[in-house]
Nucleic acid binder design. Structure first.
Lengths: 119, 119
DNA sequence: GGCCCTTAGTATCTTTTGGATACTATAGAG
DNA sequence: CTCTATAGTATCCAAAAGATACTAAGGGCC
């Protein structure tokens, strides 16, 4: 039996959300936000146009929705597809990563719906 | 067979996170935030003092931690216990509701750690 | 007595984000 | 030439986050 200096499987997840300088803090900040959690949920059943997302996420302003979707796109959660027609047609959809992220977010949304106002 | 005018089980969860005027929006806003998700996670293994939580949540300022814990307390997620000693000793712990909320938040924290920087 | 130590915050100021609302580009229909 | 629709942007104000300094309370030390 030979002992290796380095572990064979060094560390499954080197990321630690509690560490200040961890890259994953940015990811947590992205997903742990009201509008991101709702926007990803809105797209869970397929592509949706900007205006339809806006109506589903009652109360969101166009500026904030635009910023939210762009940040999600920048982090690879959402795809943006432009159909050059008039009036302009733009569809947003979840990437595989976004669909994966939707799982824990769906749990959170469900928990909130199930546990609000049950005094 | 008699048809009832009202359904026997009207609606398991009348809450809808997408609705602007739903009470649960406030709950979502509370939990879907970086510091709340981390603060609840910090307490998942038992009571912890202010200073210890502050060290665990690397980079949080005392003002923001204080605000975060107070909001969680106001919403019944966290209990605050003062031990009148010198120097002052204050312990924070999860309520049963807070422990319940920790489940979906733990999924989210785990997802973030597992899916950041895996390119 | 005067000074330092610790804990758990608060006070203050600056920067960033969120939110409300008005406005723009595009082109086809009437 | 105006009206409509879509997908945003521009602008301005309010709210929240963040950095840092400061405070209260009492016991130990010299």
């Amino acid at each position: 039996m030979i002992a290796s200096a380095e572990p064979v499987v060094p560390n499954a997840y080197p990321n630690n959300v509690y560490a200040a300088n961890c890259q994953c803090r940015e990811m947590l900040d992205l997903l742990a936000s009201k509008w991101a959690a709702l926007a990803i949920g809105a797209l869970e059943n397929g592509p949706m146009r900007f205006g339809v997302v806006r109506k589903k996420l009652e109360g969101i302003s166009p500026k904030v929705l635009s910023q939210t979707l762009r940040k999600l796109e920048d982090h690879g959660m959402v795809d943006r597809t432009v159909f050059p027609a008039v009036p302009l047609h733009v569809e947003y959809s979840l990437t595989p990563l976004g669909q994966s992220a939707n799982a824990p977010l769906a749990h959170l949304r469900d928990w909130v719906e199930a546990n609000t106002g049950i005094t």
